[in-house]
Design a protein around this nucleic acid. Structure first.
Lengths: 339, 339
DNA sequence: CTGTTAGCGCATTCAC
DNA sequence: GTGAATGCGCTAACAG
């Protein structure tokens, strides 16, 4: 079953009694055609229900106005906000985004990258999901401008944009330390993620500077693993007085673990979430969070992409970094807690 | 700047010293080629860094294995869950999804539909954002299988899949009524949405049957409008004892309005949310919600699409409907509340 | 088994 | 201004 017996430009030209070339010019909005003929082409197109075939045009011109965007997780509001911002920028410059969803799975990620690439996008924005070498190799092979973001570091051989994770985690940990907490656990996805490693670095540095012992909980993002891991930590005699979660999924797991451990939030345990979300400030207690500067990051990504798109590949890749914002709310309180 | 100086199948054939046709067969994995030559083609492809050009192939074969999916809002977890499920089904059948994000904006929706269509997808799944006539007209013009979902009704001239909104809202309202509530306000996006109208119908029916006066709050999904609208309702002397929100964004707004009105949840006001989300059951009180059967809906959508894809367009369009599930939790309590 | 041929729908020279 | 001609990279039908 073909994708519809579509009417082609040739049909339109025939009906309007002009040549294919003329019809093409008219439909493209380029000038150089008499008003009378232009109108008759438009009329014919309308009458026949003509639809421009974008892929044929792209093929012929060997260029395209679509940009690939492959992201790890649609359930994470940080990524969704980023998509949204990027869409706005791209659309303002006449580009369209072709989305790929890796679902936090490297194999799926490769599939999506390949698919998006096979659509011959003009450029590719990749937020890697886990490990980047395989993806990067694929990307370099096709001579397409690439901008990577979020789970990236400065040694990657491509343009990168990210939050300064070390600094953000360091600041967050200091916030907890300054409240008197010493036993602060950091719950993170996996050390396979470069930004998770950075967050752990920032956390550990602050802890060590304060002479406190870091306690790392590596628990993935799935509740089946994260919940029990946190619960176990909270049930230990020497349980942490504060939990610092490295992303929204872990925050969710922490919240239910705290409830299951029958601990009161925040008097018995404090909670700080890396990544903010709308729901964190509507129920009590409002959750203290670290907010990544999504707009700034998105703008930088797009700027970099646009530069490569028009300028040709620049010299050395750029590595941009932005500071996150600490938003202390009601779940980070002094320790020991004075009722 | 072209999308990279790509190496073509012709280059590969040349390097492997075979014909274009043979190279094509090898790369497509079709048999009928001697092992020796096949290997040499593969080797050449690897050496040159060949990448299949999917759009050229689609163009030539006049068919494609991608399906368009245009959705209203990425920030709504219902839609995200649906994307996720649909991706799984599609991928299992060898199809890829080309996503379009309408951002709850009819103009953007049209742009996205047109773009996705210009990519010559084999079929189109549309979750309309507001009004459907314009979009539907566009879709019908290009003779592509169409399945619409969520904000649809049985009179639409296309396959549709949805939750039985009337029934779900009716059941939810009854739940509130059975707890003793009489002043129940229903906070919804806009009556321009067909499923919102259905939800209002279900709500009103239950209210009228109980001899209670319906109170509708039409407030959009943006916090700037929704929050003040709900706050105003909650500050009235004859304020509702229960709020029934018609979607996650409204639930968020309701929650902050309840806090700002200084009302205790749930003893002073009950809350029932149409659409469930993970965060609703981690903080206290856990929010009572109505859950739409996302998997069933997604499966039905895909089934319908697949049938059209292989079977050719069926006779009359199907209109499928699924029952939602009420999940009473801690925010719907008896009224008047006995402390 | 393999090579040759003929387009898919379109944009773009280049003559007129 | 306009139309005829030439592929973009690929698949499929056919002839050897």
């Amino acid at each position: 079953m073909p994708a519809g017996t579509s009417v082609t430009l040739r049909d339109v030209a025939q009906a309007a009694d002009v040549s294919l070339g003329t019809a093409s010019k008219v439909m493209a909005g380029r000038g150089g055609v008499s008003a009378r003929r232009a109108e008759s082409v438009h009329a014919a197109a309308r009458a026949l229900g003509y639809r421009h075939n974008g892929i044929a045009a792209d093929l012929r011109r060997n260029r395209s106005n679509s940009i690939g965007l492959v992201i790890p997780d649609l359930r994470n509001s940080f990524f969704v906000d980023l998509i949204h911002a990027l869409e706005t920028f791209a659309s303002a410059d006449g580009y369209f985004l072709v989305l790929g969803h890796a679902n936090e799975n490297p194999a799926t990620e490769m599939e999506r990258i390949r698919f998006v690439l096979s659509r011959r996008v003009a450029g590719m924005i990749l937020l890697p999901c886990q490990g980047h070498d395989h993806a990067l190799a694929e990307l370099r092979q096709c001579h397409v401008p690439v901008v990577m973001a979020d789970r990236v570091n400065d040694s990657m051989p491509a343009n990168t944009v990210a939050t300064d994770s070390v600094h953000a985690a360091y600041t967050g940990t200091q916030h907890l330390l300054s409240l008197g907490h010493r036993r602060i656990a950091f719950a993170a996805n996996t050390l396979d993620l470069t930004n998770t490693r950075d967050r752990v670095t920032g956390y550990s540095r602050a802890m060590e500077e304060a002479g406190a012992a870091p306690q790392l909980i590596l628990c993935g993002t799935e509740n089946d693993r994260a919940h029990p891991a946190m619960l176990e930590a909270l049930l230990r005699p020497e349980r942490p007085s504060a939990l610092f979660t490295s992303g929204t999924p872990m925050t969710l797991a922490a919240l239910s673990a705290i409830a299951d451990a029958d601990l009161h939030l925040p008097s018995e345990v404090s909670l700080l979430s890396f990544d903010d979300a709308p729901w964190m400030s509507v129920l009590s207690p409002h959750i203290s969070a670290i907010r990544q500067p999504v707009e700034a990051i998105s703008r930088a990504i797009w700027q970099l992409m646009l530069a490569e798109l028009k300028g040709g590949s620049a010299a050395a890749p750029s590595h941009l970094s932005f500071k996150a914002e600490l938003r202390p709310r009601q779940t980070t309180v002094a320790w020991p807690h004075r009722g």
